[in-house]
């Protein structure tokens, strides 16, 4: 049993602090995933915070049957919430974040600036794909997840994942030829 499964087990037995262990262990990966789809960290943090509250509620209501791995389950909640957010939102201007981060060491600021530009580029480039194709492509090629796990996260078959990847690539190629 992994640390995450153990923490969830303890939470379900009444240890209220165990859920925070899950948050501490997974928040970096989940915010990064959401930011890679939305294009900025602030929106990703909002989405992941809501996802944790939803997961917490599901655990208390007994809706998580523990058949899936905890991490896969959290990824699923975050991907769905990110797709919903992508449909709803209007883009945020990250001016305040830039000011805050310029206080750090020069190299760190440079890598953060580069990361921010890369997030924007990634979200703009893949944001024109249908959400399910964008999610499949980010999980496979950017996050490096296996197709079987992506299928579990997206709630579809492995074949459907492969099909989404093929279609996503075809759409990107077509856009490239058009531009």
């Amino acid at each position: 049993m992994s640390d995450l499964e153990g923490a969830i087990g303890r939470f379900l037995k009444g240890d209220a602090t165990a859920f925070q262990e899950v948050v501490d262990a997974t928040s970096a990966r989940l915010v990064r995933l959401s930011a890679r789809m939305l294009g900025n960290v602030a929106d990703a943090e909002d989405v992941v915070q809501e996802a944790y509250v939803k997961a917490y509620r599901s655990l208390l209501d007994g809706q998580f049957d523990r058949r899936a791995k905890v991490e896969t389950w959290l990824y699923r909640i975050v991907v769905n919430a990110t797709i919903d957010a992508r449909r709803k939102r209007t883009r945020r201007v990250p001016a305040i974040e830039v000011e805050e981060e310029t206080a750090g060491p020069a190299q760190e600021v440079a890598s953060t600036q580069e990361a921010r530009l890369a997030l924007t580029e990634l979200a703009d480039w893949l944001g024109e794909l249908p959400p399910d194709q964008q999610a499949a492509l980010v999980l496979k090629e950017v996050e490096g997840r296996e197709s079987v796990e992506i299928a579990e996260i997206l709630g579809c078959s492995e074949g459907a994942v492969e099909q989404r990847l093929v279609r996503a690539r075809a759409t990107l190629r077509q856009r490239r030829n058009e531009s």
Binding site: Q20, A28, V31, Q49, A115, W125
Partner: peptide
Amino acid sequence: RLARATEVVRPRPDFGARVARAL
């Protein structure tokens, strides 16, 4: 290239506390 460049992306330092307050 974009995967490598975004590998350093992290939530802001107060994010854990913010989630704790929401919970």
